[in-house]
C-alpha cells in the first residue's frame, strides 16, 4: 500500500521574477502534515507571490516546488489545495449558494448543491445563501470565501490574511476549520503581517523580508522571532530616515 507522504509542501531554492524584479529569492522550506506554518512579512515582501506559487497558479522562475511528495502537472490546480486569496474569488452578481455550487462543480464534488449548502452552514451564512454576494458585508463575503476554500475538505490550506474583516465568531469558526484540517493530517500555510495572529496560529513561523526567508522559529521561540521582526522594521525606518 502506498504511504502518505509526510511533507505536504516543499520549496527548494524557489525564486520568482516578475518583470525585471525578483520578488522571491532562494526560498526554502517544508511544511509537514499536521503542521500550521505562518509566514510573517511587511507589505511587498513577496508573501502573496509565495502563496500563488504554492497554489499552482504561478510557476517559479527558478527552483522546485513539490506537493504531497510529488511534482505537479503544469498549469493545473489541485482539489487537495484550499486557497483563500487576498480577494474572495466570488462573483458579486451570483448568490453565495450559486458561487459555491459553481466551485463545487469545478472541484468535481459529487453533490455540488448539497456540498455548497453544507459549506455555507459551517460559516453561518445559510440565512443569506440566496442573497447576491454584492449585498454581503465585507465580513460576510470573507466568510463565504472561507466556505469556498474549505469546500472540498482540502489537505493543504493556503490562507492569505484570512482573518481580515472577520468578527469574533467567524474567527472562531476559521480557527476550528484550520485545526480540523491539521488534526486529520492536513497542513496549513498562513500569510499575515500581524504578530499576534502568527503567535496564536503557528507551530512554526518564518519572516519573509524582501523576498527571502530571513528567520524562522518554532512556536516556543516565538518571542525571539517577534523581537527580530520588530528590529527589522526599526532598521528599515532608520535606513529610510
Amino acid at each position: 500500500m502506498a504511504q502518505t507522504p509526510a511533507v505536504a509542501l516543499e520549496f527548494t531554492h524557489v525564486a520568482k521574477r516578475l518583470g525585471s524584479r525578483w520578488v522571491l529569492r532562494d526560498v526554502n522550506f517544508t511544511l509537514a502534515r499536521g503542521e500550521t506554518a505562518v509566514v510573517l512579512g511587511p507589505n511587498g515582501a513577496g508573501k502573496t507571490t509565495l502563496l500563488k506559487l504554492a497554489a499552482r497558479t504561478w510557476t517559479p522562475s527558478h527552483g522546485n516546488i513539490r506537493w504531497f511528495g510529488g511534482e505537479a502537472a503544469e498549469s493545473e490546480g489541485d482539489v487537495r489545495i484550499g486557497y483563500l486569496g487576498h480577494a474572495s474569488f466570488l462573483y458579486r452578481a451570483l448568490s453565495g449558494l450559486e458561487n459555491l455550487e459553481f466551485y463545487a462543480r469545478l472541484y468535481g464534488l459529487k453533490r455540488p448543491r448539497a456540498s455548497a449548502e453544507a459549506a455555507l452552514e459551517r460559516v453561518g451564512l445559510t440565512a443569506f445563501r440566496f442573497e447576491p454576494v454584492r449585498r454581503y458585508s465585507r465580513g460576510m463575503e470573507q466568510r463565504c470565501a472561507i466556505a469556498r476554500a474549505f469546500l472540498a475538505s482540502p489537505d493543504l490550506l493556503l490562507l492569505d490574511e484570512p482573518y481580515t474583516s472577520l468578527d469574533l465568531q467567524a474567527t472562531g469558526v476559521l480557527d476550528e476549520l484550520v485545526r480540523g484540517t491539521t488534526g486529520r493530517g492536513g497542513a496549513a500555510l498562513v500569510i499575515t503581517h500581524q504578530l499576534h495572529e502568527a503567535e496564536r496560529l503557528g507551530d512554526r513561523t518564518a519572516i519573509l523580508w524582501q523576498g527571502r526567508i530571513v528567520r524562522s522559529a518554532e512556536s516556543g521561540e516565538f518571542a525571539a522571532l517577534a523581537a527580530a521582526y520588530r528590529t527589522l522594521f526599526e532598521r528599515r525606518e532608520h535606513d529610510g530616515a
Binding site: K52, V79, H86
Partner: peptide, 19 residues
C-alpha cells in the same frame, strides 16, 4: 471582465483542470 472582479480568474486557475 467577470473574472477580474474579486480576482476570480485566480480562483479558476487554482481549480483542478488545465487552463
Amino acid at each position: 471582465e467577470h473574472e477580474a472582479e474579486n480576482d476570480a480568474l485566480l480562483g479558476l486557475m487554482a481549480a483542478p483542470g488545465d487552463r
